[in-house]
Design a protein around this nucleic acid. Structure first.
Lengths: 184, 184
DNA sequence: ACCTGAACACCGTTCAAGT
DNA sequence: ACCTGAACACCGTTCAAGT
């Protein structure tokens, strides 16, 4: 019975989850699915777009349920994304690629931006604030995952992440009144 | 005459600058230096540590000169890191790896943290704020570089980056008084 | 001390040809 | 429509052996 696109993506996520990016190869994936490597290219254009779909799938279950306030909703989604990506080796690299190439393909990112917009006074500020939060989430996870892969300690990473997130959130709720210096 | 460690790193930076990570291979590097691939392993332990040295070299010339105020100094270093990394394809990936594995190996990161510390009331806050800034810089550059590599537009990227940076800086100078909601 | 030669176990992608 | 077989042009790393 014929292979489907979804089976390919599911197998790719499984491979990433258990072995990391170094072992998520087209050839290994083909072996897992018991087809020849060339068969995959009927279902996906190339490895890059495969990875974008993998990112989508990884974040598909992040809850975007209504919260009491926009700020709490933002916080919950940020924590949700972190929780979804952290256990998947090299997950932050894959999701960062997806965010760069197609930020609207992930519901959690779209919902995050909507909630941020409720607290911002212009689309430009909304974009800047959303990016700040997403970069912090993916950057933090990336550091943790790179260190883990190199057998380095991650002491206090969760606390540091949450403190950084709160700083970012503080800046969104701070009126334009107290603005810091603008150089050059 | 014998190859030196520095010649290897310089050639690696050159390869990255002109062709990106996909073409920065140990074999290609060896060809460039007119040696056999195995020869490189006398000078570097493996590709991963080579990349960490490449990151160091990329940021070696970022100016950490004294500014009038800590805030302006932070801003200048952040812009300097961005300017150094942006023109090097996949530079943000390489530097992010370096920041994760050995954040003290880059003078610009160390100086950035010192300046942030002058505005923070605890080491924990200093860490969170420094990470927030670094993640924003590298995340922004990463998005731009991934999009460029995929022939996607980067309209208004510089402005969006600076707005995000200013949000992050605002949060540092905002007293603990006006703190945003803390959930769960 | 520094490098070559040669091997080992892999890659992503393409494409004629099969069913 | 979907896949095989086979090829093309590559990878990182190791290590005996040479100088």
């Amino acid at each position: 019975m014929a292979l489907t696109h979804d089976e390919v993506i599911d197998a790719a996520v499984g491979l990433l989850r258990t072995h990391g990016l170094a072992d998520l190869t087209m050839r290994r994936l083909a072996r897992e699915l018991e087809v020849q490597p060339g068969a995959l290219y009927w279902h996906v254009a190339n490895k890059q777009t495969l990875l974008v779909r993998v990112a989508e799938r990884m974040l598909a279950d992040v809850t975007t349920a209504e919260g009491s306030t926009p700020l709490l909703g933002i916080r919950r989604i940020a924590l949700g994304i972190r929780a979804a990506v952290l256990p998947v080796p090299d997950g932050s690299d894959v999701v960062a690629l997806g965010y760069a190439l197609d930020p609207t393909s992930v519901a959690a990112f779209v919902r995050l931006r909507e909630l941020v917009a409720e607290l911002c006074d212009s689309p430009a500020t909304t974009t800047a604030a959303t990016d700040l939060i997403v970069h912090h989430v993916l950057g933090s996870v990336g550091v943790e995952q790179n260190r883990r892969a190199a057998d380095l300690p991650n002491r206090g990473a969760t606390g540091a992440f949450e403190r950084g997130l709160d700083l970012a959130l503080t800046s969104i709720t701070t009126p334009i009144a107290q603005r810091s210096a603008h150089g050059s």
